[in-house]
Design a protein around this nucleic acid. Structure first.
Lengths: 125, 125
DNA sequence: ACTTTTATTGCAACACTGTTGCATTTGCAA
DNA sequence: TTGCAAATGCAACAGTGTTGCAATAAAAGT
């Protein structure tokens, strides 16, 4: 993978973000006209493919990207994300590792575990 | 909620299906020109609201609907769905109830737990 | 330092998904 | 049977994600 302006900047934005970001959120955080919409889609796809970032699908079906320390979507490192109904942010609950028995005959490649409700920040305000 | 043709038919399709269905799958299973696209969206939303069916978001962000015996997305009855990469079907793994400690200060209203990979059917063929 | 190769990008066009306003129809209760 | 509100059809729309192709730029070779 080549080290282009777009790749660097987009990766930095996701890495430096406390919360998971959707395509459109990334777009809004980039300087106006920095790069094309299609490029952002392609870069996000490439970074996820490579494993630098990973996908989280929230309860509305919106795809978010985050750079958690542990990959969230490999069977061995499954952890949960939280999607706030009020502020819409997606946060990583790295400390919660759900236990479940793997189903027989199913081959697991990915997981996406999401809880939604109200986050501590929104509860307080 | 009124008992209309569209509501009945769409509910029957979902109830009688072994797998969870997306909006477009429901549309394809209805007779040509049976009702408008918008109506299907509205009916699905209404049935989910009422609790007759529930939403499952697969790993690609596609929203599916199913009529599981136990609601899958209330915190108390969380269970897992499986999304096959090959045949794209979404099946309900009612027997798997993951254990996890609820996070402090977060108020949970919904959950969406999805595993993906290859289903037994596709593994065999 | 210059050339070559090929991954990446921009642009434009496109398909698909989901939503909304409004006039019309229909279920259901009075 | 009548009247009201819910539900529908239609059309227009916004947003999302994809694709083909020519232009550009990163990185390796000379």
């Amino acid at each position: 993978m080549r080290n282009t302006q777009a790749t660097q900047k987009i990766y930095d934005i996701i890495k430096d973000s406390e919360i998971a970001l959707s395509h459109s959120e990334v777009q809004n955080m980039l300087p106006e006209g920095f790069c094309d919409r299609a490029t952002i889609y392609r870069v996000l796809e490439r970074l996820a493919q490579k494993g630098s970032i990973h996908k989280i699908v929230n309860v509305d079906g919106v795809i978010n990207y985050a750079a958690c320390e542990y990959a969230a979507n490999t069977p061995s490192a499954t952890h949960v994300h939280f999607n706030c109904e009020r502020c819409q942010t997606v946060t990583c609950l790295e400390e919660i590792k759900p236990n479940f028995t793997l189903p027989k005959n199913y081959k697991i490649h990915q997981s996406n575990f999401v809880l939604s409700g109200i986050c501590p920040n929104c509860s307080a305000n």
